[in-house]
Simulated scan of single mutants.
Amino acid sequence: MKMRIAMLLAAVAMPASAFAQAAAPAQTTAATVLEDFKPSSLNQPGQEFPQVNSQGYARFRIVAPDAKAVKVSLGLGGRGGTVLTKAADGSWVGTSEGPLDEGFHYYHLTIDGGTFNDPGALNFYGSTRWESGVEIPAHDADFYALKNVPHGNVAQVLFPSPSTGTQRRAFVYTPPGYDRNQRERYPVLYLQHGWGEDETAWANQGRANLIMDNLIAAGATRPFIIVMTYGMTNDVKPGAPGGLASFDIKPFQTVLLNELIPYIDGNFRTLTDQKHRAMAGLSMGGFETKLIAPKNLDKFGYIGLFSGGTVSVDDVNNTPGYRDKVKLTFVSFGSRELEGGRTGPPGGPKVDPRANAAGLKAAGINSVFYVSPDTAHEFQTWRRSLKEFAPLLFRD
């Protein structure tokens, strides 16, 4: 099982840097960069930098008068980078070499060889550490915008985990109106983060609660609970991708099935049958979903893989009960992940998830395949995936 999970995770995680694409393929020359820069929406209060413009460029300014070299590394793991230039006032300034994909991006600073976060930006847990974040305005940002609509709550819960000998943490989204009608019960989606992230990712970087609030307000989805917990239970050393080889799904499966689900059902007003419970995740969380949900179809009726692998007809045929018990198989990717039509680890076997989804449909399986336009292995892909996935759930 350890080798299997390592191979599966490698298919999308690759190095940790693959989690976020730093720049779109098309580059724009410096002469055409528009000077309509504004502070990023993810800046610390009162901070002017980093800034973003209408073309998707990001501009940085770091005050480090005694530094010899400053670079901004965009994307988990610091793939790529923007070298800053020292100004007369001792600050370091620079603009990304090209426009970035719409949506959220991690980044950090390298100052004279040391790794630091930008004091002007908010921090988000990714790449097994807290990283700075910058938000490139998206043309479709309305679906995750903070609006004047009824809002649900995201609450931290601590639940006992005898299998790990700890108290573990989860965040639970309850929809608007949950506290008012004490007799109503709700379906539950267990939603997992990616490699190097934690249980804060979906509400912070992913804006899952705002996506749900807006969908519910528009009447586009049935209200349901979302549970987000940490998907790593092993002492996997952060950093090098080789740490994936020591990851074992079994301890997390025990936490999820034997500890977290009973806690949620015992402390929240849930509908506890299989047809009212779903599991989904991004990247590593998608692979966790693929390894756990099909083998526990008495507990999960809906399966969602966001940049986290694919489901084939062979997978269905090799899983007893899949045809009868799974109400929906949802698979999604960013369009940049599917350039050439196939995806998979570097140097490894490639698969065509679109063909797999079509094969499921032809076999009579309720299969939905979604591609996020002009995005890669990054949160804008997964925000859009949740927006597409949620209205398909619990349609009874």
Rank of each mutant, 00 (worst) to 15 (best):
S127D: 15
D118N: 11
T128Q: 09
T110Q: 12
G90Y: 13
G120Y: 00
E131D: 15
G103I: 08
G133C: 02
S127N: 13
A121E: 04
L109R: 03
N123E: 11
F124R: 03
Y125W: 08
D101S: 12
T128N: 12
G133Y: 00
W92Y: 06
T115C: 06
T95M: 07
G98Y: 00
S96R: 03
F124Q: 01
L122M: 11
A121S: 15
L100N: 04
N117L: 09
D118P: 10
D89F: 08
G98E: 01
V134S: 03
G133M: 01
S132P: 06
L109Y: 06
S96H: 07
E97M: 04
T95W: 07
Y106D: 01
E102D: 15
F116Y: 13
L122N: 07
G120M: 04
G113V: 12
R129S: 11
I111L: 12
G120T: 04
G133W: 00
E102A: 15
V93M: 11
G126C: 08
H105A: 09
D89T: 05
H105E: 05
D118I: 10
H108S: 10
T115D: 10
H105S: 13
G94M: 03
G94A: 09
G90M: 13
I111S: 10
P119I: 07
S91P: 03
P119D: 10
G126K: 00
V134P: 01
T95A: 11
E131T: 08
Y125D: 04
G114L: 15
G94C: 06
S96Q: 07
G114M: 14
G120E: 04
G133L: 01
Y107N: 13
Y107G: 09
G133H: 01
G94I: 03
Y107Q: 11
Y107C: 12
S91K: 00
N123H: 06
D112Y: 12
S96F: 08
R129P: 01
I111N: 09
T110V: 15
G98Q: 02
D89K: 05
L109A: 12
D112G: 13
I111H: 11
Y107S: 14
E102K: 11
T95V: 15
L122Q: 14
G98W: 00
E131K: 02
G120K: 00
G133K: 00
D89R: 05
N117W: 04
W92F: 07
S132M: 03
N123K: 07
F116N: 05
L100K: 03
G103Y: 07
E97K: 04
G133E: 00
E131F: 04
E102W: 09
T95D: 05
L122T: 08
G113A: 14
L100R: 08
L109P: 04
P119L: 08
F104D: 06
N123Q: 11
E131P: 02
V134E: 00
